[in-house]
């Protein structure tokens, strides 16, 4: 697990941790049952206040994303996946928004974009089936 903290971003650091861990779960790079670093370990690695890591973990526990087993550590919750759909959708939405603004500046209309998406999807699909 590799997280990147940018204190200049303005978004509180505990929020950055939560968003990135959610993303890693949504992307399947963290699986249910995977163990997370200790609070102290992550704080030292990211050079941030341990209280900040503790807060991020606590909020994710309350949301059912992480589960702490006393003495054993903190794990990705087994029930984390129902959350993941909304999260995946949110991430995709952000990407689509970027795609649309880029398309606008390049002078493409919606139907052209849709055609292009379909075209590429089919190409990729054929490739993976081969």
């Amino acid at each position: 697990m590799r997280l990147y903290i940018d204190p200049k971003e303005g978004k509180p650091i505990y929020r950055q941790i939560i968003d990135q861990i959610k993303y890693l779960i949504a992307a399947g790079r963290l699986q249910p049952g995977d163990e997370l670093p200790t609070i102290r370990g992550l704080a030292e690695e990211l050079l941030i206040n341990p209280n900040t890591v503790a807060r991020a973990y606590r909020e994710m526990e309350q949301a059912g994303i992480l589960a702490t087993r006393h003495g054993a550590g903190t794990f990705v919750s087994k029930t984390a996946s129902p959350m993941a759909y909304e999260e995946r959708r949110r991430i995709l939405k952000e990407r689509v928004r970027l795609l649309l603004s880029e398309s606008y500046h390049l002078g493409f209309e919606l139907d052209e974009i849709q055609n292009l998406v379909r075209e590429i999807y089919e190409e990729e699909h054929i490739q993976t089936r081969e």
Binding site: I39, R40, A43, E44, L47, I48, N49, P50, N51
Partner: peptide, 13 residues
């Protein structure tokens, strides 16, 4: 700088 920050984090941990 990293060593200094690490020392701060370790101390408060």
């Amino acid at each position: 700088r990293r060593d200094i920050l690490e020392a701060i984090v370790r101390t408060v941990a």
